[in-house]
């Protein structure tokens, strides 16, 4: 697949980390635009119209979440948040403010690039999400027809409408984390956003049905304190 060079906006105030991100991303074939303040980040996002933004949550002039909100007012470009560990509530806040994913500092290059690829793919997926078939472990789920079958054995599996809706929402964000709040809102509606215990039971059932080893899930992954992530085969392998 040939494509124009993707432009990535790097919003990070630490020069060394910025330099590292530039080196890594350019080595992987991306064009890098740098911004070291929140104000600058919004300006760059408007003028250069990047394909993706990497936003550090701690900036000198404002919170990274403010950048996400400002960008979301005029653009739906994918945003990945860079955050330190043990800041689950900040991650959730950033995701709820419109970020697409997060990477915990310190991160490996492989992990970072996988997330970048996942986020960039979203643009393409949004277009043809309805007709897509998601493969989870042994099962192929046709989200449009709401059927689940094992391509190898031909066996079928019954999923309830809610289970299908959950998988559909996760599949739309495949490879990226979906917060409890977002998942609850998209599946049950706005009044259910404070009831994460609903979700746990359904995820457990889904794992029992879809995962090979439900005790060690490899596809329906829990991000403790944040939400869930659907990992489709091959997604995690570094470039």
């Amino acid at each position: 697949m040939t494509r124009a060079l993707h432009a990535v906006l790097v919003v990070e105030d630490e020069p060394q980390l910025r330099a590292l991100l530039r080196t890594t991303l350019e080595a992987a074939g991306y064009r890098v635009i740098e911004a070291e303040t929140a104000r600058r980040a919004v300006v760059e996002a408007r003028t250069h119209k990047p394909d993706l933004a990497l936003v550090d949550l701690g900036l000198p002039d404002a919170d990274g979440i403010d950048v996400i909100r400002a960008v979301r007012e005029f653009s739906s470009l994918p945003v990945i948040v860079l955050s330190a560990r043990a800041q689950e509530h900040e991650k959730v806040a950033a995701l709820d403010a419109g970020a697409d994913d997060y990477v915990t500092k310190p991160f490996g290059v492989g992990e970072l690039l996988a997330r970048v690829r996942g986020a960039l793919r979203r643009g393409a997926q949004v277009a043809d999400a309805d007709g897509s078939v998601v493969v989870i472990g042994d099962w192929a789920l046709d989200l449009a027809r709401r059927t689940t079958r094992n391509p190898a054995t031909g066996a079928t599996l019954h999923l309830t409408p809610i289970e299908f809706r959950i998988v559909t929402v996760l599949a739309q964000h495949a490879g990226r984390v979906v917060t409890h709040r977002q998942l609850l809102r998209d599946v049950w509606g706005p009044e259910a956003v404070e009831r994460p215990e609903y979700l746990r039971n359904f995820i457990k059932q889904l794992r029992n049905k879809l995962e090979r080893d439900p005790a060690r899930p490899r596809h329906l992954v829990t991000e403790i304190g944040v939400g869930y992530r659907l990992e489709v085969a091959g997604d995690d392998s570094p470039a």
Partner: peptide, 17 residues
């Protein structure tokens, strides 16, 4: 909060995989 242990075990094993 009331939390199922299997969810935590699964998340840990996935993280350390």
């Amino acid at each position: 909060e009331a939390y199922p242990l299997d969810d935590i075990v699964g998340a840990v094993l996935h993280r350390l995989d």
